[in-house]
C-alpha cells in the first residue's frame, strides 16, 4: 500500500544509490579519522616539547582551524587546490581530517596531562632517552585514557561528512539531494539517508559508552 506521502517505489529506487554514497561516507570517515589520529598526536607532542618559536605559531594555526567553520574551509581548500589535485574527495578527506586533528590534539593533550607525574620521574630515574619515554611510557597510557573521546570524535566526523555537499562530493546526503532534485521527490531519499545515519551511529555510540565505562 502506498500512502500519498510515502512512495515505496521511490524508496526502493533510491536505496541502492544511497548505499553507494554511504561507501564514500564511510571511506571519508575512516581516512579522516586516520589522519586526525596521527596528526593530532604529532600536534600534541609538538605543543608539549617544541621550542616556543615553533609552538606558538602551531598553537595559533590549530586554534584558528578549530574555531572556523568546516564548510568554509572545505570550499576554500577546494577552490585553491582543485587545479593541482584531481580528486575532490581527497581534498575533502584531508580538510575533514585536519579539522578534526585540532580536536584530537586537545584530547591527546588532556591524555598526556593525565599521565601521573611519577611516570615521568620514573623514566628519568631509569635514564630512558626522551624518545623512549614517550614511546614506551607516556603514549601508551595517554592513548588508553583518550580512547572514548577519540571514538566519539570519529562518530562526530561520520555525521559531519554530509558537509561535503558544499563541494559536491557524492556522499550519501548529496546523493539523496540529487535524487530529490531529479525526481521532485525528496521525502523518501532524505528520510532514508537520515535513518541510515541513525542505524549506523547509534550502535557505535553505545559501544563507545561501554568502552567508557570499562576504562573509567
Amino acid at each position: 500500500m502506498n500512502p500519498s506521502w510515502w512512495d515505496w517505489d521511490h524508496a526502493f529506487a533510491v536505496f541502492p544509490l544511497l548505499l553507494e554514497g554511504f561507501k564514500i561516507t564511510l571511506l571519508a570517515t575512516v581516512l579522516g579519522t586516520l589522519i586526525a589520529v596521527v596528526l593530532g598526536l604529532v600536534v600534541a607532542i609538538i605543543r608539549r616539547i617544541a621550542p616556543g618559536i615553533i609552538r606558538t605559531p602551531v598553537t595559533w594555526v590549530v586554534e584558528f582551524i578549530r574555531m572556523t567553520p568546516l564548510v568554509v574551509q572545505l570550499v576554500f581548500a577546494n577552490l585553491v587546490l582543485s587545479p593541482y589535485i584531481d580528486s575532490t574527495l581527497a581534498i575533502g578527506i584531508w580538510v575533514l581530517g585536519i579539522h578534526y586533528t585540532t580536536y584530537m590534539a586537545e584530547v591527546y593533550r588532556a591524555g598526556i596531562d593525565s599521565v601521573a607525574k611519577g611516570q615521568w620521574e620514573a623514566a628519568t630515574a631509569l635514564s630512558l632517552p626522551q624518545s623512549r619515554t614517550w614511546r614506551a611510557v607516556v603514549i601508551p597510557q595517554a592513548i588508553r585514557n583518550t580512547l572514548p573521546a577519540l571514538g566519539n570524535y570519529a562518530i562526530s566526523m561520520f555525521k559531519e561528512t554530509p558537509f561535503f555537499v558544499v563541494i559536491y562530493i557524492p556522499e550519501m546526503v548529496r546523493v539523496a539531494q540529487t535524487y530529490g532534485g531529479d525526481t521532485f521527490r525528496y521525502t523518501e531519499s532524505i528520510t532514508l539517508a537520515g535513518l541510515i545515519f541513525l542505524a549506523a551511529s547509534y550502535p557505535t555510540s553505545l559501544l563507545i559508552r561501554r568502552l567508557e565505562k570499562k576504562l573509567a
Binding site: S4, W5, K159, E160, T161, P162, F163, V165, V173, A176, Q177, G180, R185, Y186, T187, I190, T191, A193, G194, L195, F197, L198, S201, Y202, S205
Partner: peptide, 24 residues
C-alpha cells in the same frame, strides 16, 4: 536525544527544507 544526535545536522536541515513541505 538519540534521534537528533544520530541523524546528521545536514539531513535535518534538508528534511525541514525539502521534505516537510511535501508532507500532506
Amino acid at each position: 536525544v538519540e534521534f537528533f544526535r544520530g541523524t546528521s545536522l545536514v539531513v535535518q536541515l534538508f528534511w525541514l527544507a525539502f521534505v516537510l513541505p511535501q508532507l500532506p
